[in-house]
Design a binder for these strands. Structure first.
Length: 108
DNA sequence: ACTTTGACTTGCA
DNA sequence: ATGCAAGCCAAAG
């Protein structure tokens, strides 16, 4: 594994630290890691997670800047992601999470 | 080794 | 306010 795995690890830790019923965005994670512009890499990190058996990492709590579940299509079914969030008490604003209530910013 | 794409974000028109 | 283009870094073709 390349050194970028370290980046993945930090993303994983951050995502694990997301409180129950809260969500965060790729941009905030990237910013917390000092890579504000590299928000795409956060997605790659989660992709690696999804490909592995890292079910301990709530990737469904990570959304894009608009609160949309951009990664839902990468799940087995695009519905499971929203179902899980709703199961945690997360409210939705149409097809996006109500960030005004559930947005959580990592404590880097 | 080069090109294309991707779970994003920001900026300018 | 909406739409298109660029920037970013890494992985897959």
């Amino acid at each position: 594994m390349p050194e970028s795995a370290d980046f993945f690890l930090r993303v994983h830790e951050l995502v694990k630290q997301i409180p129950f019923g809260k969500v965060t965005t790729y941009g905030h994670i990237a910013a917390a890691l000092g890579a504000r512009s590299s928000s795409r890499m956060v997605g790659w990190a989660l992709n690696a997670v999804a490909h592995a058996d890292r079910f301990d990492i709530p990737c469904h709590r990570v959304v894009n800047r608009l609160g949309e579940l951009s990664g839902k299509m990468h799940f087995e079914t695009p519905f499971v992601m929203r179902e899980r969030l709703e199961a945690e008490g997360v409210t939705f604003k149409g097809d996006a999470v109500d960030l005004a209530v559930h947005l959580w910013i990592p404590d880097a």
